[in-house]
């Protein structure tokens, strides 16, 4: 199986193949991208550029923009700080919240694109908290952004899964009733495993074993069929997630390691090793070390017992939660 197959399945399967139109095509063969219109005057990010997404077309902080320009500018700023300028994520989040408010007030963006705008800003805030340690950002605000996105585009499961991820985190941290979240998660999984699995598994596997969440994550990986989930996106180059294949397999390996499945973990690590761009992947040495001593890869998880979180042990739950897939290629 091509690694690229899995990459497409896990990272961009939210894109309906039936929605492909030439104006959606990211330059360089990156496939369509939801709500982009490369035929318009708006300046969307050029993902083929190795080192920048912000091209100077728009005013700083996207100030004063509404409509499609606000959306395109947000995308430029988002991807710039998300992939390259990690220290700028929190400020960018704070700058983009007013942009969302301005666009909402102006009412000059269609619902689907406005949903994407709300989603994107929420994602940036979550990345800033989870990966950059910006703990003073208001996580409840990200919930309201995701709820608004879901309200605007209720059929987009990618948005629904992100909202669910955030609410599950909150429910476990705050001792809230988990049952409705688990029921909803499986309902989403049945609808679209290709989106639900990669969105949720790295979050779920960090929780204490006694919550049952790590086993849920392992079951999701067990049942995940990338061949089935891939669709037509398999032949694209993914400039937004060059390490998506390696990242997805490595995340699956951590899931299996968490639940003590050494052979499952080893198999996923081998798949990561065979993935596109593996030799340039910043986490290559982590995989090599794990394959050289699989027991040491599993041992820290087992040492935590049944009642402790292991999120801090997960590469995919901490410093590389996003960059495990989205790190830029070396120059």
């Amino acid at each position: 199986m091509s690694v690229r197959l899995l990459l497409g399945a896990t990272l961009l399967a939210s894109i309906s193949c039936s929605s492909q139109e030439s104006c959606d095509q990211t330059p360089g063969g990156d496939g369509p991208y939801p709500t982009y219109d490369y035929c318009s005057e708006a300046a969307y990010p050029d993902f083929t550029h190795p080192r920048k997404r912000w091209d100077g077309t728009y005013p700083e902080r996207c100030a004063g923009l509404t409509g499609e320009d606000a959306w395109a500018c947000t995308e430029q700023l988002y991807w710039e700080v998300f992939q390259f300028d990690h220290d700028g994520r929190a400020d960018a989040y704070r700058q983009l919240v007013p942009v969302v408010e301005a666009v909402e007030a102006a009412g000059d963006l269609d619902d689907r694109t406005l949903a994407r705008l709300n989603l994107r800003v929420a994602q940036l805030g979550i990345a800033a908290i989870a990966e950059s340690g910006e703990t003073d950002l208001p996580v409840g605000q990200m919930q309201t952004l995701l709820e608004r996105a879901h309200e605007l585009d209720p059929d987009e499961i990618f948005i629904e899964a992100w909202l669910s991820t955030l609410l599950i985190n909150g429910a476990i941290v705050l001792g809230q009733d988990l049952e409705p979240h688990i029921d909803h998660m499986w309902e989403m999984y049945e609808r679209d495993p290709a989106i639900t699995t990669p969105t949720l598994m790295a979050v779920l596997v960090g929780f204490p074993m006694e919550t049952g969440m790590p086993d849920v994550a392992a079951e999701m990986v067990d049942r995940f069929d990338p061949e089935e989930a891939c669709g037509d996106v398999c032949d694209w180059e993914f400039f937004r997630a060059e390490f998506g294949g390696a990242g997805m397999f490595f995340s699956s390996a951590e899931v299996y390691a968490r639940v003590g499945n050494a052979e499952g973990a080893r198999a996923q690590l081998e798949l990561a090793r065979a993935a596109d761009h593996y030799d340039e992947w910043p986490l290559k040495s982590v995989v090599e070390d794990a394959l050289a001593d699989i027991d040491s890869f599993l041992a820290p998880f087992a040492a935590r017992g049944d009642d402790e979180y292991v999120t801090d042990l997960l590469v995919t739950g901490t410093d590389a939660a996003c960059m495990v897939c989205h790190a830029p290629l070396p120059e």
Binding site: A130, L137, G206, T311, T318, A321
Partner: peptide, 15 residues
């Protein structure tokens, strides 16, 4: 710091 602990502190930081 773990992601979960970060969420803890974000919630706790809300007065």
């Amino acid at each position: 710091m773990s992601c979960v602990k970060r969420f803890f502190s974000v919630v706790l930081g809300t007065s």
